[in-house]
Amino acid sequence: MAISAAQPVTTEDLALSAQRITVKFGGLVAVNDVTFDIPDKGIVSLIGPNGAGKTTFFNVLTGLYAPSAGTVTLDGQNITAMAPHKIAKLGMGRTFQNIRLFATMTAEENVLVAMHSHTKAGITSTVLRLPSQRREERESSDAALELLDFVGIGKRYDEYARNLSYGDQRRLEIARALALRPKVLLLDEPTAGMNPQESAAFVGFVHRVRDEKEVSILLIEHDMSVVMRVSERVTVMDRGEKISEGTPDEVRNDQRVVEAYLGRTGTEGSAR
């Protein structure tokens, strides 16, 4: 269950822990000495103005970038700079800020791809269609359709990903990430492009994912109404640094956060 936000957490209760992460791109310090935890079965958010380094931080957690400094621990195991597919297999599922589905594969196939790491069929058993392979395919397919149902696009399983509506593509990305049977689910701006009703329904959906799939969830989110309602804890980044952390209420009233948002013009996510 969720850990009450104010209560300090011990390491055993952490699904993921990132210690003092720094990422440099040439001279640019995109993430600077950020320490960040996701409590087990918690729902936490990462917010900050554009270019704050949120996506970059995600990319470190998923192994896409090796941090210049710092360590990432997933479920007690050090995964710093491990290959992305290994991290994924250990239980890290993610979605992308700019949707990255396999465009000419069907919704079902997209989900099946993410089952690669916990299925086994090799070349021989596939070519000969051995019973073990057929069973595995059947089970995978059932599981994939169940996941598509879970995110609400079960009827569209046979549609090419590129033909799905924007909202359905976002759902498919979540279904695909869940197919990894992740311990931690990272959602990069999941409500981008959603209308207010959809965003409101999304809050309930996130809770349902956490409760039914027993994952810990980290969201990057620009929609403050979503952030305030869904998060148990919120971390705020600005220009690569962590500037605030706490319950939604604490963060909302933090002067530095207000300044970070108001101090920038032209940011879409002004604190509401």
């Binding site: 998923t62 896409l64 290959a83 992305p84 597919h85 290994k86 994924a88 297999k89 993610r94 992308f96 990255r100 589905l101 396999f102 465009a103 000419t104 594969m105 196939e109 099946l112 791809v113 993410a114 690669h116 790491s117 916990h118 695909r176 990430a177 197919a179 990894l180």
Partner: peptide
Amino acid sequence: RAWLAIREDELAASMMGVP
């Protein structure tokens, strides 16, 4: 499917556990 996924989007494929 893994080949196809790599053809479509290598980075996404690796993030979905495809070595």
